[in-house]
Design a protein around this nucleic acid. Structure first.
Lengths: 137, 137
DNA sequence: CTAATTGCAAATTGTTTGCAGTTTA
DNA sequence: TAAACTGCAAACAATTTGCAATTAG
């Protein structure tokens, strides 16, 4: 899915800045901080401002185009959300790679929550550890 | 478990500040921000400084005495970690109550991760929504 | 007595805002 | 053309740091 289409679908205006931000996220194989994204976009659009990046990440988040990952310590990371709805993350603490996970614990637990009278609206499930390559050393 | 014992176990010096911080967390029925904790502790120890609170939360986190909750948007929240190991959270977006959850998705998924060659070291699973009381309105 | 801890003030980091000019639909 | 978007500079909030004085073990 290209950036332009993605934006139009959400009735957002297609600007070079937005295309660049999405493009960076698309071509990255791991999750990125706002800083990372800014630095990358800067290469394509030397004039872009950090506040534009923040504002757009915020909007993209709101429209469900990107999602956030928040490691135990330290900042927020962003990732393009897969079009096929829902997925969770397995994140390597060494190389930062984030593998998608074809499993969601919510299915197993909905009834339990219902018994408590709790209505879930959002959830997060993230796993941190070491990927195959980073395991040794 | 009282604060003093908790600290000694982790070979931390027992100071009034630390006791107060733990005590606040103990007597709270929901998760608290650093701000919240500071304001509360201030009532007992009018001289305490915010940096002391931050420093200590950091240490307590490190020693596994407290844990962090990070809602999708907005700051970090702290909670005393239950001595009986592991649990997850169900957090009400309205009143902030955090119900403990007697279920952990990791058990269901370890084999799958193993197949990927991924070694998990930490994980988080949090559910946000509305509790029984806050459902209407 | 010594190392850990604290309070204070200042610095830093990350993020947000107001506004005037520019661009998109 | 109107509404959305951008860059810029300044504001802000949250967290961290250096340092000298204090305190727990």
């Amino acid at each position: 899915m290209d950036a332009e289409k993605l934006l139009k679908e959400k009735q957002l205006k297609v600007t070079p800045q937005r295309k660049a931000i999405i493009s960076v996220l698309q071509s990255s194989n791991s999750v990125l901080s706002a800083q990372d994204i800014f630095s990358e976009v800067l290469k394509t659009l030397p004039g872009i401002n950090f506040s534009t990046v923040y504002r757009n990440l915020d909007i993209l988040l709101d429209r469900g185009i990107v999602c956030q990952i928040t490691p135990q310590r330290g900042g927020v990371l962003y990732e393009l959300r897969m079009k096929e709805g829902h997925h969770h993350h397995v994140i390597c603490k060494k190389c930062g790679a984030s593998l998608p996970l074809e499993y969601c614990p919510m299915e197993d637990i909905r009834r339990k929550l219902d018994e408590k009278g709790f209505t879930p609206t959002e959830h997060r499930f993230e796993i941190y550890g070491y990927c195959d390559k980073c395991k040794g050393g």
